[in-house]
Computed example of a mutant assay.
Amino acid sequence: MDALKFFRRAVEPSLADIVAWTGAKAPEGADLAMKIVDVAPLDKARSGDLAFLDNPKYVGQLEKTRASAVLIGAKHADKTPAGVIPLVVGEPYRACALVSAKIYPEATRPGSLFDGAGVEPGANVHQTARLESGVTVDPGAVIGPRAEIGAGTVIHPNAVIGPDVRIGRNCVIGANSSVLNALIGDDVIIHPGVRIGQDGFGFAMSPRGHLKVPQIGRVIIQDHVEIGANTTIDRGANRDTLIGEGAKIDNLVQIAHNVSIGRHCVIVSQVGISGSTEISDFVVVAGQAGITGHLKIGMGAQIGAQAGVMADVPPGAKMGGSPARNAREWLKSVAWVDNMMKKGHGEPKA
């Protein structure tokens, strides 16, 4: 990695620290006082670095790595080269994330772009807004009448917080984002360019023209949610749009009015969710999938990339294709079509 780094190391942990943080098991006789300077991928790591192996695809890189230590599962620990200390742990990727967060805490939560605290010159905070102590407001940000913002929250440049919006403690509101008609919990990260609480797309269609339906609901975002750059979340029409605790939403996602997303869901880039759909807890929706309106997606369901979901999905189901169906059936049908093409049954006739 280039010598210029944008994040400062907070600590240089010993192997003993890493074992304590992750619960990893070091081999007998390992030097637990050894210091780890940085974290790095297997193929780029050097002496003093910590790497990890989670995906067996990279076993070849493990065998050539120059890292000082590797977080690794028991299955592949015997492939660790001489001179590299294997730290055996059940979830190597998660363990490495824990260590990285200790070394680079600034990378887990965007801070003020101006290294300041309080309201910076150039910010516009309405006199009726209420900010707890420890709120940071960067230049160009606008906070509207009667807005309430909790301690430790950072508002980045040119963000707009609308009237009566409530934002909890230790949140980050990214640059050039807008938060309107919303109630936001604690420890929420909103990345740059996010749009929250604007009109839902609601019209009473008619041959005489399309009459706008007033969107009078709110957006409710619970604690520990993260929302990626340029995602849009419309406010409810006649009820609230809800984002459940711990949900992780990627960049460029569209969430329509009245949608309810459960706890700890993962919604990946370019997903579109139509109005009034209910998504239960721990659902995963992969990139570019589309979900039509007024559906129910059951707890723990997995929606494959580019799937087109047009009917309710039962709990735990794995869906793929468009229109979406059971992923195993979809893959079989794709294989069957490919086989027919290879046999010439799918060639157009002259």
Rank of each mutant, 00 (worst) to 15 (best):
I273L: 04
A301S: 11
I273W: 02
H257N: 08
V284I: 15
Q302W: 12
E278S: 14
S260H: 15
V253A: 07
I279W: 06
S260E: 15
G246T: 07
G300L: 12
G293E: 10
A237N: 11
D250Y: 10
G304Q: 06
D281Q: 11
I255V: 14
G244L: 09
C265G: 14
T292A: 14
I255D: 10
C265W: 02
F282L: 15
D281T: 07
H264G: 00
G246A: 09
H264N: 15
I297M: 05
G272C: 05
S269M: 08
D240F: 05
G275N: 06
F282Q: 10
R263G: 08
V266M: 15
N238W: 09
I261F: 06
V283E: 02
N251T: 03
A256Y: 01
F282K: 14
I261E: 01
S280H: 15
I297C: 02
G275P: 07
V285N: 06
Q254N: 14
G300V: 13
M299G: 00
N251W: 09
D240G: 06
N258L: 02
G246H: 01
D240M: 05
D281L: 09
I297Y: 10
V259K: 01
S276W: 12
G304H: 08
E245I: 09
G244V: 08
V266D: 00
T277Y: 06
A247W: 00
G262N: 05
I279R: 02
D250M: 01
M299F: 03
K296S: 15
G300W: 09
A305L: 11
G275Y: 08
H294F: 11
Q270C: 13
D240R: 05
D250F: 10
G298Q: 12
E278P: 00
S274V: 13
D281E: 13
K296E: 14
F282V: 08
Q288E: 12
E245F: 12
T241K: 01
A307Q: 05
N251Q: 04
S280R: 13
